[in-house]
């Protein structure tokens, strides 16, 4: 089993992801922008969070144009798993592998805090046995405000692609539990096939009890079990 973790200039979460993987006994492989030849040996790629290339123009857009990301549609089509966390979610949207885009938080502020997300019935094995669970998980972003056209949102709902929604502790999804203005409180979505997951919250920062939560471990655990 080989899991790649991307490192672009400005990525600052790759060590946290690697640490989580190694807690399962899996050593991840760092993947840089030109490492297209390494893709063929990978079974999964995790696009770690941060501020790739400074995120000056639009978050994720420059990374989306790198050689490695241009190869990603093929990698996804072959059925390999891809998880985009925070900036990784933004990158996946900018490559159009996932629909929609992450725009500036409604508060116009960087939001860094613990939130609750409700896990929906999902088309992805990455969220197996998690439907209706409420996770405590941290977010840290300036552009997490998910936007898509009404048609795209309808399509996401129809195919059970809205994987995570911001909620309160009891799982109630409302404006009050929306930290950034996302449409339908969307915190994460999957592609139609379910092998791509993009999410703004950081599961790797909620993977150990000493961090305050290990709810996020589920995603990594499901991934690793699926690849065994």
């Amino acid at each position: 089993m080989k899991i790649g973790v991307t490192k672009f200039p400005g990525t600052n979460n790759e060590q946290d992801v690697l640490r989580t993987l190694s807690s399962f006994g899996v050593e991840g492989v760092l993947i840089c922008e030109k490492d297209t030849d390494k893709l063929k040996d990978l079974n999964a790629l995790i696009i770690a969070g941060g501020f790739s290339f400074g995120d000056y123009l639009r978050p994720g857009i420059i990374a989306a144009k790198t050689a490695i990301m241009q190869e990603l549609p093929k990698f996804v089509e072959q059925g390999n798993f891809v998880i985009g966390i925070c900036n990784g979610f933004q990158i996946l949207c900018e490559t159009r592998i996932l629909p929609g885009v992450l725009t500036t938080n409604r508060s116009t502020k960087f939001v860094s805090r613990w939130v609750y997300v409700k896990i929906n019935k999902s088309n992805s094995v990455l969220l197996r046995n998690s439907a209706n669970k409420i996770w405590r998980i941290p977010i840290a972003h300036f552009d997490g405000n998910y936007y898509a056209t009404n048609e795209q949102i309808a399509e996401l709902k129809k195919k059970n692609q809205i994987a995570l929604q911001y909620s309160d502790e009891g799982g109630v999804i409302s404006e009050n539990s929306n930290p950034n203005g996302s449409m339908d409180n969307i915190a994460g979505i999957t592609n139609k096939e379910g092998n791509v997951l993009g999410l703004m919250p950081h599961p790797e920062r909620a993977s150990f009890n000493y961090l305050g939560s290990e709810d996020g471990r589920t995603i990594f655990q499901n991934l690793i079990e699926e690849l065994k």
Binding site: L57, I61, I62, K65, V101
Partner: peptide, 9 residues
């Protein structure tokens, strides 16, 4: 089209 603007928004 490709980089500066996201036609969705």
């Amino acid at each position: 089209n490709e980089i500066l603007a996201n036609p969705l928004i």
